[in-house]
Design a protein around this nucleic acid. Structure first.
Lengths: 111, 111
DNA sequence: CGATCATATGCCCATATGGGAATACGTTCA
DNA sequence: TGAACGTATTCCCATATGGGCATATGATCG
């Protein structure tokens, strides 16, 4: 079997840095393809292809406006990633490290 | 250009579900390769290959213990993903939706 | 040492990638 | 209607994937 297609899920779609860039831009609101092309400095066809991937996994929605097509973020599709990665937060978070330190201190005081 | 190698960064490494599974298991603590093989129901070589990818991007560390090799989670390598995806949290979080509702209400009362 | 256990590496293959370039499609405007 | 604009699709190609399988490497034990 080969690597799973980029359109398999949000994890795969978002592994590509350009697609993350696109989403980052869309945080600011709806954008046309040309806007994205200008902001990304990529060729138009590649941008359209990335948008297709993002649309297939539900990360963006589109609506037509004259001859333009406006793309809009659908952040909800990122929730699975957020949920998954958040389980690991305590692994690195300073807050948790400080908590550990405090608990250790309390333990020592007991003795 | 082809798709970026899985060893490029955590985003790419973690796009593969088996590798996420491995990390999920390692939350519980160190595991030998054989442990992982049993828990995953995968062939040993594939597990070793997945572990290599995870090690190359710093998501796991290993230490030798006799003829076993024990793998351990390094959650810190997930921080970039967490940081990135957290920017989007307000897009879907119910808390934020409720906040929006409250703000709307306040605004109406003002009038 | 030889045997066995634990892990890693190598090879094969079908599959999809992302960019480049050309072009097709759809809409607006003169 | 024809031209120009905005977007999507198609074809080409080098590259890497992940699984299956065989085998190499490393460590322990009798």
């Amino acid at each position: 079997m080969a690597r799973a297609p980029t359109t398999t899920d949000a994890f795969n779609a978002v592994a590509e840095p350009r697609r993350r860039q696109i989403l980052d831009i869309l945080i600011g609101g709806e954008r046309s393809v040309t806007d994205l092309v200008d902001l990304l400095g990529l060729a138009q066809p590649q941008v359209s292809k990335h948008l297709r991937v993002l649309r297939e996994v539900g990360l963006v929605d589109a609506r037509d406006d004259g001859r333009q097509r406006l793309y809009r973020l659908n952040g909800h599709a990122l929730k699975p990633i957020h949920d998954w990665v958040t389980k690991y937060e305590q692994t690195w978070s300073e807050r948790f490290e400080q908590l550990d330190a405090v608990l250790e201190e309390l333990k020592n005081e007991e003795e």
